[in-house]
């Protein structure tokens, strides 16, 4: 059965790299005894593919893997979660039909919250206003802008917002393209905001990937 599973990377797990998560899943799949399919070749490993890595430290509720195993989706979820560590748990499993698109070909969006330690909410608000204002300008007078670079970013930004969370910290919420071929990371978005709108932040921020939407 071809399976696609959405899993979390939170708590201690957010301090682990993508390759660590790959190893955790491979070993868990052996312990779970679910008849996972192995890759061919000189050094066979469980055949599992993963969505692109998130930045180390990111909290995520929307990581994806795809694999093939001798069990149903419900069994996969139950047996894997029994052997997976806290903070790395499967939350949803999709049973894929024969010939279903690989996840690398699926259009996806991800909903992030970037929580800053040393940035005022007001600064985020101003930066978003500048972003929106330029969007209007670009619609009115396209000839005055280098639209190719701008547009390539804008095509991958679906929603932006700024607010304060319960701890009074500034939050930059953004829904970004997560399709593998055109993914835009929160880090790349912040870099763009720094270059174009003078939005300054240090390294002290936490990204939370709250949701992954597969279209």
């Amino acid at each position: 059965m071809r399976l696609r599973a959405m899993f979390t990377k939170e708590g201690k797990m957010r301090f682990l790299s993508h390759l660590d998560i790959v190893r955790i899943m491979e070993r868990a799949s052996r312990r779970a005894n679910i008849g996972i399919k192995y890759s061919e070749g000189f050094h066979p490993t469980p055949k599992i593919t993963f969505s692109p890595p998130v930045q180390l430290g990111t909290i995520s509720y929307g990581e994806l893997l795809e694999t093939e195993a001798d069990c149903s989706g419900a069994e996969f979820l139950e047996r894997m979660n029994r052997v997976l560590p806290e903070g790395c748990q499967i939350i949803k499993v999709f049973e894929l039909e024969e010939g279903a698109k690989k996840m690398s070909k699926c259009a996806m969006k991800a909903d992030y919250e970037i929580v800053f330690e040393n940035v005022d909410c007001e600064e985020v608000v101003i930066a978003i206003e500048r972003y929106n204002a330029r969007g209007v300008e670009m619609d009115e007078k396209p000839e005055e802008h280098d639209t190719t670079k701008e547009q390539s970013i804008r095509d991958r930004v679906f929603y932006l917002d700024a607010y304060e969370n319960a701890d009074g910290k500034a939050v930059f919420r953004c829904v970004l393209d997560a399709t593998q071929s055109s993914i835009l990371s929160p880090k790349a978005l912040l870099e763009y905001f720094r270059e174009e709108y003078g939005f300054m932040t240090d390294e002290n921020y936490t990204v939370c990937k709250n949701e992954l939407i597969i279209e």
């Binding site: 301090f15 312990r31 052997v83 390294e203």
Partner: peptide, 15 residues
């Protein structure tokens, strides 16, 4: 943990 190269060294909680 967020200031060091390999925070995975210091988190514990392994299987």
């Amino acid at each position: 943990l967020l200031k060091v190269q390999k925070p995975g060294r210091y988190i514990g909680g392994e299987c």
